[in-house]
Amino acid sequence: MKSLFFQCTFALLSMLIISQVHGQSFSEKLHLGIGFGPMRYYGDIYSEYTQFSVAGNIRYELNDHFYIKGQVTFGSVGASDQGSERQQLHPFRSNIQEISIMPEFDLLNMNEGSKWTPYIFAGVGYFHYTPFYYEYNDVTKRYDKYNYDLASVPRKINIPFGGGIKYAITDNIRLFGEGNFRLTNTDEIDGYQFKSSSIKNDVYYNFLFGVTFRLGGDYSSHRSQKSSGHSRRNLQNCPPVYL
């Protein structure tokens, strides 16, 4: 699975290089974004609580509807069994760092005048997690932090997928809100591994609200020139004409 992730990364870089060779404007097609929002977990411990996440992403336009998005996410998840029927578990929190690559599809064309669009995405991610818990120390009269002794190195592959809505403030600035769900191949994000649990692997998800910026390109003029059959990039290479 690791090789699949790195193959996807190589494919993304290859597409960017090819676009430059064919004379496409790199900055017109590149969007940088940042988002913030809540993150939660779903697994063996049922009383989940909401933590915080932040993400930075890069979107590259393959065409007016399809993008390749690379994203880095930092956040945490947690839950507690306090008050439940089974209190043999410790409350936990896990810090998560994730990198992912996701093809993304816009239902509407924002480069041709649409102010908003729903969008969907799915891809592959690679994440690291560090679960820990606190216990009260009667001697020091404070809570001590303990890391879980996991059976394997906590670096795993996940499958991120979800959707959201984009809204254009200008041609180059867009707001977005999205939900991103991750299927994982581990049952130890919470520090436990229950073979008899009905939940085979842990899941985590977050909701992001943020903004993206196109690095270059005046798409208002680009649209008018495209409708007349001329691209803005071609016009930039023409010599001036004096009357």
Rank of each mutant, 00 (worst) to 15 (best):
P131G: 05
V77T: 03
P160N: 09
N109T: 04
Q82A: 13
G163H: 05
I157D: 08
F127I: 03
K69M: 11
F92P: 00
N63Q: 14
M110W: 01
E98Q: 13
K69H: 15
G163V: 08
I68E: 02
Y126R: 05
K166G: 04
I159C: 12
R155Y: 15
T73Q: 06
L150N: 04
Y60F: 10
D149F: 12
E104V: 02
R142I: 10
R86G: 06
H128M: 10
Y119G: 00
N137H: 03
N109K: 07
K156A: 10
F66C: 14
K69E: 14
N95K: 11
S114T: 08
M110K: 01
R155V: 14
S114Q: 08
L107A: 11
G83C: 02
Q87W: 01
R86P: 01
N95V: 06
F74P: 03
Y167F: 15
G75D: 02
Y148D: 08
F66E: 12
Y129N: 01
L150M: 08
T140V: 09
V139Y: 11
N95Y: 09
K145R: 15
P131F: 02
G125S: 07
A122K: 00
T73H: 05
V139C: 06
N63M: 10
N95G: 12
P131T: 05
I68R: 01
E135I: 04
I169P: 05
S80M: 07
T140W: 10
S76V: 07
S84L: 05
I120H: 02
R155E: 15
I169K: 12
L89S: 09
